[in-house]
Design a protein around this nucleic acid. Structure first.
Ligand SMILES: [Zn+2]
Length: 394
DNA sequence: TTTGCCGGGAG
DNA sequence: CTCCCGGCAAA
């Protein structure tokens, strides 16, 4: 029976990774995301805030180990996945490659905005490159080989950005198939590598006054702020998403419609239902922004072989259905958010907060510069309307 | 020159 | 509201 020979590979237990065309069904958007992380912590920081339990499916590709593994369950799974030595770069870095399939097209922009924001807020020792694929124009090669990724200039793909801790680094890494690493990345000053997270004090930059983390609904014209993520999720679920409140069943979509804010408890008498309309902006404490260098990064040589394996996750799956207990979810979110304001350890050296009281009118490259006039449709809405950019705001 | 974006306007 | 653009200031 040669029909089965496709996934003959060793394990019969491992289901077959769906063909690339699966990701490219019309209406879906695939984001090819390449992360260069220096520690596991970085990833822990990024993904709980962005991909965890959102209406999309995340497939991880160990870019150097040439393995695919599904990551549509929870962050915990991704931990295990990352701990695998195949994902650890010899130099102590982690090179990760992800296919992200959005179940709703509208989620793409939200996701990008979120992940950009998180990365710049955290000043991660990470480089991130995003390749956005439009519908099914790319990766249409042989059914199973993502090696069919066309040349960088191919129209379907667009480089998004690459942030790095040092503004001078020209992050232009082409990942080669197997061995080599850090192709043209200038040697980063962080020698003090942290292969395992040397967690410093997880206490954020808390002021003496009690800053309490609260959760604000981001739905248009809704300024609801609640003290627990479960509360805000229930609010979004019932009020905005129109779901029945009888059960705590959640499909994870709420995560995109709220965000944490820090509220000064002194000027607030434990408002549990509404917030004083002090700051209309979404995120309360504007974090200090380091110079973030955005540079283009495009994959040069296509990964010639990628053995696909993993569970073919049911496409519009409901991630939380196995564990309807919302507590589990909250716990994870809550745990990670402690780390949020913590700066990554080694690279704090070159970063001066620099009192920029005068706000010299923008520093970071905005959508127009990053994407170019040619792909105006990839700008954020504000940029498209010639308003202040909200994706790369500073 | 290009880029960011305020203010204003149309629908 | 959403969407667009003239025009100015800064890069
Ligand atoms: Zn923008």
């Amino acid at each position: 029976m040669s029909s089965n020979s496709i996934h003959t590979v060793h394990d019969s237990t491992v289901p077959v990774f769906p063909p690339i065309s699966y990701f490219l069904s019309p209406g879906f958007i695939v984001v090819l995301l390449c992360l260069t992380l220096t520690s596991l912590r970085d990833k822990r920081l990024i993904f709980p805030k962005t991909t965890c339990r959102t209406p999309m499916t995340l497939f991880s590709v160990g870019s150097f180990s040439s393995t695919l593994a599904p990551m549509d369950q929870s962050v915990i799974d991704s931990y295990e996945l990352i701990k695998s030595p195949t994902h650890t770069h010899p130099a102590g870095r982690l090179y990760l490659l992800f296919f992200i399939m959005f179940h709703h097209k509208a989620m793409q922009n939200t996701f990008c905005d979120k992940i950009f924001r998180v990365i710049s807020e955290l000043k991660l020792n990470s480089q991130i490159g995003c390749l956005l694929g439009y519908d099914s124009m790319v990766l249409t090669g042989p059914s199973l080989s993502p090696a069919a990724v066309p040349e960088p200039a191919s129209r379907g793909w667009k480089e998004v950005l690459s942030t790095s801790y040092s503004s001078s680094t020209s992050g232009n890494w082409s990942w080669d198939t197997s061995d080599q690493s850090v192709p043209s990345t200038p040697s980063p000053p962080l020698s003090n590598d942290s292969t395992h997270f040397p967690f410093v004090d997880p206490i954020p930059r808390k002021r003496k006054n009690s800053m309490k983390v609260m959760f604000k609904c981001l739905w248009k014209n809704c300024e609801k702020v609640l003290s627990t993520s479960s509360g805000i999720q229930r609010h979004i679920r019932t009020v905005h998403l129109g779901r029945n409140c009888d059960s705590d069943y959640s499909d994870g979509e709420e995560d995109f419609y709220y965000s944490e804010i820090e509220v000064n408890m002194d000027s607030l008498s434990e408002g549990l239902s509404s917030l004083t309309p002090t700051s209309p902006t979404t995120s309360g404490p504007p974090p200090i922004f380091p110079p973030v260098s955005l540079t283009a990064c495009l994959p040069r040589s296509e990964p010639s072989h990628i053995a696909m394996r993993g569970t073919p996750s049911h496409a519009p799956t409901l991630l939380s259905q196995s564990a309807p207990s919302t507590l589990c979810h909250i716990r994870t979110d809550h745990a990670y958010q402690h780390f949020l304001p913590v700066l990554s350890v080694p690279a704090m050296v070159g970063l001066c907060p620099k009192a920029t009281l005068l706000k010299p009118r923008g520093e970071a490259k905005k959508c127009r510069k990053v994407y170019g006039m040619e792909k105006r449709d990839m700008w954020c809405t504000a940029c498209r309307w010639k308003k202040a950019c909200q994706r790369f705001n500073d």
